[in-house]
Amino acid sequence: MITAGIDMGAKHIKVVILKDGEVIGKSKISTGFDQGASARKGLDEAGSQAGIELSAIEHITATGAGRKSVPEKNSEVTEVGAGAVGTIRLIPEARTVVDVGAEEGRGIKIDGAGKVIDFAVNEKCAAGAGSFAESMSRALEMTVREFGEISLKSEKTIPMNAQCTVFAESEVVSLLHAQTPKPDIARAVCDAIASRITSMVRRVGIEQKVALIGGVSHNIGFVSSLKRALNCEVIIPEDPDYVGALGAAIIAGERKTNG
């Protein structure tokens, strides 16, 4: 059986194709203005990597903010549901899933079968998501990767006053004018996002082990801040940004089997 999951994120579209439960193709492309066309492009890329025609896919499940805009989909699943199922496949001992994407953050509590027990979401505000780090790294004139790396060089905790990304940009500029070292600013930014994510996750209750998924997992500065804020180990699966798409593909398989 061949199924696919497509995760229509705010910044990137991720596709995973499964054949009898094994990943045979995947792709990650930027989300264009025409979401339907971008979705098609993502599916085509993953399909050619898998060496199959799209018509060979028996069920496609879409997730993510733009999941409604996938013409090829057979069904939909929420980001929470897809993230939970994808995580438990990769990290069976995970009980809390922290999912941080470009424009959204989520805390999900799951049982051993990947069933969602409780969740909390932060959406529609850039302050608790990847865009925050992105805007701040732009203000510091570096890439998000460099930004994450230099933040590790700091051992200082500077609190950021501004919550809003727009106001925080001005605050970062003032910190630069005040000759604050860039690593300290970068750490302050990572700490700020981590503290917002942590208080959101606390609402569902933190049960170990904690898994971190979503594109922001690639920011090592954020990961380090999150570990400090949660005060526990955080497990990041391989390809953390594909977990939602993987979960959707697994769910596609279940739906196909159960009719």
């Binding site: 409780d118 917002r196 208080s199 609402r203 209750g205």
Partner: peptide, 15 residues
């Protein structure tokens, strides 16, 4: 005042 959602979170579990 600007961080109530976070400060008060401990008094407000989601269920």
């Amino acid at each position: 005042r600007k961080a109530l959602k976070y400060i008060c979170a401990d008094c407000k579990p989601s269920s």
